Amino acid sequence: MSHAVVVGVDGSAQSAAAAEWAAYQAHRSGRVLRMIHAGGVEPALSAEPMDLVQSLPRPVLELRDRLAEVLPGLQISCKHVPGHPAYALVAAGDREGLLVIGSRGLGGLTGLLVGSVALRAAAHAACPVVLVRAGTDGDGGVQSDVVVGVDSTRPCAEVLAFAFEQAAERGAKLRALESRNLPTGRYVTAAPVDPPEITDALAAEALVRLQDALAPWREKFPEVRVEAGVTGWPAGRALVEASRSASLVVVGRRTPKIRPAVPGLGAVAHTVLHHTHSPVAVVPHD
């Protein structure tokens, strides 16, 4: 595999967690790890390559050396890239196919302090962007579930491909969750009808559609154990709850054919990013 895993680093605890996660991801998938320190201005043209490396912040260099020691077979490059951090990282990630960025732990309302760089990257990138909160275990709980949100009426190939690939690389179970607005009130009908019976019937029908949407991917990834479920909870809440025992949650981000002036993440992705208990991958799709 020729592409690298790109991770943004700035010497902070959250970027260290992201770099560790990215390093294990690169090691599992046989990729190179590219550590990018973004921002500032273009270095002097007269600077020697070694000078450019040594000018990086000490915590970044120490992190690079520690990762090389923990994963001795991993190829690592580390460089400074000028310009706005979000756009510099997006450009690097788009070239390589995967971008990893840190987020700043839990906020006062039990939500993640995602930060403008991470949000902009997740909203603009043409490649999957993984956000990793500070304190995340580097190997990502490799055999814990990978969770993916699915809409069986419009299954997204890009999202499902990424989720199945991640589960296959980790030897993990894939949990596919679909949110449906299942009725809870009474129905007025000619004959008495028990509402739970209607709810169960609709849920069973939705589960069949979900299984059908997953069937081609089960065939492509026969080694992946798959658990499909339909919930009446809102999609964001269901995925946040599932993230408690997950190594990764995968959500989609629709990219309209006409690029808007201000790209958005969508309500589900936004909720998951701000309240997740695990790393989150935002995968763009048509």
Rank of each mutant, 00 (worst) to 15 (best):
L265P: 00
H80L: 05
G236F: 01
R95V: 11
S152F: 06
D145Y: 03
D286I: 10
N181I: 13
V142G: 02
E42P: 01
A122Y: 03
V81P: 01
A172I: 05
W217C: 12
V53E: 14
Q14T: 15
V282N: 04
S12T: 07
A215T: 07
G252D: 00
A26S: 09
E197G: 14
S247V: 00
P216T: 07
R34Q: 13
A91S: 15
S179R: 00
V249N: 02
R58P: 00
V249P: 03
G97R: 03
A47W: 11
V70F: 11
A190Y: 14
R218H: 10
P128A: 12
V117L: 11
V6C: 06
S103I: 13
V282F: 05
A267W: 00
A44F: 11
E20A: 14
G111K: 08
P128M: 07
Y187S: 02
H37N: 13
M1V: 14
T184A: 14
K220C: 12
E223V: 12
G105C: 11
V132I: 11
E69T: 15
G108I: 14
K220V: 13
T110L: 15
N181E: 13
G8F: 07
H270F: 12
R253W: 03
V159P: 04
G111H: 02
V250T: 04
V130D: 05
M50R: 13
A269C: 11
L174F: 03
G97H: 03
L71S: 08
P82V: 08
E48R: 12
T184N: 09
Q75C: 04
I36A: 12
R154W: 13
V148D: 07
L67R: 00
L98S: 05
A161T: 15
L265T: 09
G149E: 08
P72K: 05
S245H: 11
P222D: 11
A91R: 13
A16Y: 01
Q14P: 12
Y187V: 15
G93Q: 05
T276K: 04
C127P: 06
S15D: 10
F162S: 02
P279F: 03
A86I: 06
G73C: 10
H285N: 08
E69S: 13
I101W: 00
I76A: 00
G141K: 01
V53S: 01
H275A: 15
P85L: 02
G73H: 14
A161N: 13
A191P: 00
P216H: 07
S179I: 01
G252Y: 00
I198P: 00
P196G: 06
G171Y: 04
V250D: 04
L98H: 05
V130H: 02
G73E: 14
Q75I: 09
A16M: 09
Q25M: 12
R253C: 08
H275D: 07
L248W: 00
